[in-house]
């Protein structure tokens, strides 16, 4: 089996993983969104690659050509690009609001502030003796 025939997909896979890694490992909320768009773009590559036929041309009918690439993945990806930009826009709006509410867009800062809120609720409920429980809970989440 000629393994090299798949090279295009492997490049796509590598791109996908880079994007995916940025999304889950980085803590800056904007960077996460950038990672997400890289991840999605590489999925687009994957779709477009499967529609390609060697030697074919773009699917705009013309008497000069006979072989066209598959138009269906193109249509699907057009839709997916739109969905991607919609998600990014909404995500950015959320980031802006988070910045206003927390004064930071680093995941860690936000989590610390949330944990603080949580602790206050606990103090209100049980008094100071409940500190140990709260520690456990933070680990749970």
């Amino acid at each position: 089996m000629n393994i090299l025939g798949l090279y295009n997909y492997w490049i796509v896979v590598v791109l996908m993983l880079i994007g995916f890694y940025i999304v889950i490992a980085h803590e800056n909320l904007i960077k996460k969104l950038v990672g997400l768009s890289i991840f999605q773009t590489s999925v687009f590559f994957f779709y477009i690659s499967m529609g390609k036929i060697t030697g074919a041309t773009a699917p705009i009918l013309d008497e000069k050509y006979e072989l066209y690439s598959n138009p269906l993945p193109h249509v699907l990806i057009l839709t997916a690009i739109v969905v991607g930009i919609a998600t990014t826009a909404l995500g950015l709006a959320l980031v802006v609001r988070i910045q206003e509410a927390y004064g930071s867009i680093e995941e860690r800062d936000i989590q610390e502030q949330d944990a603080h809120d949580q602790l206050e609720c606990q103090l209100e409920a049980y008094g100071p003796s409940s500190m140990e429980i709260s520690d456990e809970q933070e680990q749970d989440e």
Binding site: G91, L94, R97, A101
Partner: peptide, 19 residues
């Protein structure tokens, strides 16, 4: 304000799921 972070977290997870 935690609604915002919850929503953001869901957005990331949900988009990964959709992808």
């Amino acid at each position: 304000r935690r609604a915002l972070t919850a929503s953001y977290q869901y957005l990331i997870m949900g988009t990964i799921g959709a992808t």
